[in-house]
Computed example of a mutant assay.
Amino acid sequence: MQDVWSKRIVVGKSLTVYYLQSESEKCHNLFGKSKKSKDFKFASHLFLVKENDVLVFGMECIVYKRLNKSIIFVAKVDSSGLGTHPASSSGLAASAIETVIDTQYKEGAVEVEVTLFAISQGQYLFPESSENGHKRVLSDSGLLHWWVKCLEMIRKDYNPDEEQINEAKEKKSSAEISSPVTDKHLAYMFVPGLPSLRSYLPNSFWKQGTAIQQGKAVDMIPRYPDDPKARYLYELQDQRSEMSVAEFWDTLSFRQECCSGKLVGFYSLILPRRLEKAEFPGNKTSGFGLVLPPKLYRIIYDSLIKHSFRSPSIASQSTKTFLDETIAAIQRVDGFTMEKVAQTIDGNAQPAPPKKREPELSQTLNVLQPRKKKK
């Protein structure tokens, strides 16, 4: 576990990572009334990162599992804006997601999909943090590039670059090369209303569009918490619509959820397991992440989003109060140790050379500008 975080934290700096999970629960409605919803279970994963005495980064993922397939839905990502940037927010997000990916592989997953939708709000996990004077708004292109940058970090860690693919093809027949090598389209990006994403896609592993492209929309497209496309799917379900997946994505840009000034970016990263990396040496996650009863997990989550981060001093006090209350609430859970809950990670990444500052999640995610409807 240490390596996946420390390689993205500047040498000489350290951060404390907190990790809590919920026990698995049955999930009956991920795909509406479709048979695909059967037997799915879900569990929540919460990561919080503290620098000195204040929380600086947070992420919640929800993992949906059935048989040997895991879907990691990135529900919320936020920064308080109060850190000194010993690591980029995109790097911390990638490390958190990779910790969950690694856990899924160790538990027997054959395929893992990371999926999310990006939409702007002033804050997600740290209330009033947009008022503390340290968060600045991302530009439209910054929002798109930030998520591509984050997911591309993950893709590179689990899949070879194109140069490695060419070398592999020279040494082996195509039948001998594992599927991630031959299937370049591992990452998908779709922004309703934007006809071309060419300038945002970094290489041929990325494809403009969505991972789900065939079948009936109400049966094939999942519905996640706070999902801007879910209401549309429920309407189609009530109407017993036969709309196809392709028609759904084509018409989504004209829905109020995606054309009222807040366009949404949809992302998917498909990671089939590569046998030669089955053990993922150096990325050990076993023993980290205390598993809580679902009710207790929700109490802790609800407590977090009630604390203010509107100034450095208030955020520092909120951090102390929240962590003290959380430790008191979980210390009687079976298997509790502080090492399971929190680990201090020392950085070993070399500082990046000075360059033009790139947008980070310490700024508030800005909305995407909608396209103008044709008259």
Rank of each mutant, 00 (worst) to 15 (best):
K262R: 15
H28V: 06
S24C: 01
D324R: 13
G265N: 06
Q2C: 01
A175E: 15
P160Q: 07
R231K: 14
S14T: 00
D219V: 01
A94H: 05
I177L: 11
F73W: 12
V17T: 08
P228W: 04
S308T: 12
R274L: 09
Q123Y: 13
Y301G: 04
K207G: 02
L368E: 07
L201Q: 04
E176W: 05
N348D: 02
L116P: 00
F254R: 06
D334F: 10
K26V: 14
V100P: 08
Y124T: 00
E163M: 08
S120Y: 13
Y297G: 12
L290G: 09
P228M: 01
S22C: 04
T210I: 07
Q2D: 10
L275D: 09
E325D: 15
S286P: 03
Q121I: 04
L233S: 08
Q256M: 06
L194D: 06
R198S: 14
F40E: 02
C150P: 02
Q104N: 09
Q208N: 04
F288S: 05
A168D: 09
E51W: 01
C150F: 04
Q213W: 05
E235S: 07
L125W: 08
A93T: 15
K171N: 01
T99I: 06
Y19M: 07
S316R: 13
P370S: 15
F288V: 06
F40I: 02
E163G: 09
L186V: 07
L304G: 03
L197T: 06
P225F: 06
D140R: 08
S34F: 12
R198T: 10
S14G: 01
H45W: 11
K306A: 13
R136Q: 12
G209Y: 09
T103Q: 14
Q256R: 13
T337L: 11
S260Q: 06
T103A: 12
S34R: 08
P353F: 01
G12Y: 03
T103W: 10
N132V: 03
S89F: 11
Y124A: 07
L296I: 00
T326F: 01
A211Y: 04
E51R: 05
R332L: 12
T16P: 01
V54P: 02
K356R: 10
R357P: 03
V4W: 04
I177Y: 10
D39Y: 11
D3N: 05
P312K: 11
E51M: 02
Y188F: 11
S139R: 11
P293F: 03
L271R: 07
H85L: 02
D346A: 00
F288R: 04
S362M: 11
I300S: 09
T337F: 05
H145T: 12
P127S: 07
Q213S: 14
K76R: 13
M1V: 15
S362K: 12
M220R: 07
Y64H: 11
M153A: 08
I154G: 00
S14Y: 00
T326Q: 07
N29A: 12
S199D: 15
P222G: 03
